[in-house]
Design a protein around this nucleic acid. Structure first.
Length: 286
DNA sequence: CACGCATGTCTTGGGGAGAA
DNA sequence: TTCTCCCCAAGACATGCGTG
């Protein structure tokens, strides 16, 4: 996986937050999954959350990498992620990261603001991933988006209703409910919505569900799709884009320089498709 | 409890943009 | 033009959750 994938914010124990420092002092060998209790204002956690929500796994915001996230916080442009989508070009003039040596805005600044606008119309599941809810990655987020159709409905669903979703168990369901119980979390959703971020399932996701129930794994590089586009194409048709090959995998799509997943597919007798076969699979009617 | 699979972490290498 | 920094893309693998 990418260095930008996964919830990298989850295990942060930075030195620039007093509460994290105390937590570190309390560490013992038996501790697992340590988190700074100061999750709202802890600078390092905030930086990691910004970094994560900009990653391809979430809202795929151009420019918003580790350095940009750091600059937004250090230069005082953001105090938390709720203000992200309200940023303007004018705001960025006070940050060296977004300006040239002569003080004028760099191309990076314009790309960043344009990327924020693009991100406002991302599918609902990506918005859910971007909220950094514990245990909720792309797969769980897609399941929740498909079932509930809007963030509003997810936020008001009970643990039982959430856990009823295929692919979501009680731990994930409780995690979602706990997340929405925090007022400052609800404030993020509110401010993003005001800034224009789509909070409902879009129509583009309602393609014929020709891959419903199928688990498909992609390995290697495809000529006409990057990995996210391939995943999105599978998911949009009701399939599941899995990261690992098993006996239940419907197809393994093999591009240039495939990895061990191809070997695994051969070993398990899973059907293998080249890119042309994958494209036919996407376009064929049920 | 075992299995399947998603998540999280680490690694390597390529490409683009700005600085020197 | 070259160098450096940062972002991006992808594979491998360990861990742990969800399910039957």
């Amino acid at each position: 996986m990418s260095a930008r994938s996964g919830s990298e914010h989850a295990f942060v124990m930075p030195s620039d937050c007093p509460e994290c420092g105390s937590l570190l002092r309390q560490m013992s060998d038996g501790d697992v999954d340590l988190r700074c209790p100061n999750s709202r204002s802890c600078p390092a956690q905030l930086r990691e959350r910004l970094y994560y929500l900009g990653s391809r796994a979430a809202l795929d915001i151009d420019v918003l990498g580790y350095e940009a996230a750091q600059a937004l916080l250090v230069d005082g442009l953001l105090t938390d992620e709720s203000e992200l989508f309200s940023l303007t070009l004018q705001d960025l003039t006070s940050s060296a990261f977004f300006t040239k040596k002569d003080g004028s805005l760099s191309a990076i600044a314009e790309r960043f603001i344009a990327a924020l606008e693009d991100a406002k119309s991302r599918p609902l599941w990506r918005v859910i991933v971007a909220l950094s809810i514990r245990h909720v990655g792309p797969t769980a987020a897609q399941a929740l988006a498909t079932r509930f159709g809007s963030l509003e409905k997810i936020s008001t669903a009970s643990v039982v209703e959430l856990a009823d979703v295929d692919g979501v168990g009680s731990i994930i369901a409780e995690s979602v409910v706990e997340w929405f119980e925090e007022e400052w979390h609800r404030n993020i959703v509110k401010k993003w919505a005001i800034a224009g971020v789509l909070m409902e399932q879009g129509e583009e996701e309602l393609l014929p569900q020709t891959l419903a129930g199928m688990s498909i794994v992609v390995t290697g590089s495809l000529a006409h799709f990057n990995r996210d586009e391939a995943t999105a194409a599978i998911v949009a048709r009701g399939g599941k884009a899995s990261g690992s090959v098993s006996k239940k995998t419907a197809y393994v799509v093999v591009g240039e320089a495939p990895g061990s997943k191809y070997d695994k597919a051969i070993e398990l007798g899973v059907p293998v498709l080249d890119e042309a076969g994958f494209e036919r699979l996407l376009t064929e009617e049920k």
